[in-house]
Amino acid sequence: MPENPDQLIRDLLRGRLSSLEIERLQRQDKDAGRARQILRLEQERLGWSDPILLCLQEHLYVVEQADGSRVVRCDCGQEFGDYRRNWKEAALVHERDGSDGEVHRGPRIADPGWSILREFYCPGCAAQLDVEVVPRAYPFIFNFQPDFADRPEAEEAERSGL
């Protein structure tokens, strides 16, 4: 399957496609070049000199800096450190037990003895990057550690000393 037109993929990223257009994308044989196409479009949009290697999640990217290090960066420019460490360790955290009634109300609030919300914000732009549903004292969930084809894990770990 060849690449879809750039404009279609831009609209996909910006949430501008109709449900019918989304369905068409879901039904088609997956275009093998999508990852490269999205990286190219995001690189153009953000205008960074450091190449983007991966779209990690909403707002967050793995970029390669001039010294060869690979870090997690927010689209506002805020950096979160090496991509092999959980970016949440460098975020702002707000634990919400529901008693403020600012999100869920009445019986929709979970019993805090079972379940609380842990919100992670970008220290730069305050975007809400993740909401963990966890009990108290649960370790941060490290959602995704990518494996890059050009960097075998063992070799990489040895080089960085991690």
């Binding site: 707002h59 869920h104 019986p107 929709r108 979970a110 019993d111 919300l117 809400q128 909401v131 549903v133």
Partner: peptide, 20 residues
């Protein structure tokens, strides 16, 4: 279910509320 948030969100989205 237990009185927990019933369906977690993703990448900054909130979960659905508890069942009752």
């Amino acid at each position: 279910a237990a009185p927990i948030y019933s369906a977690p969100g993703l990448m900054g989205g909130y979960p659905a509320g508890a069942l009752y």
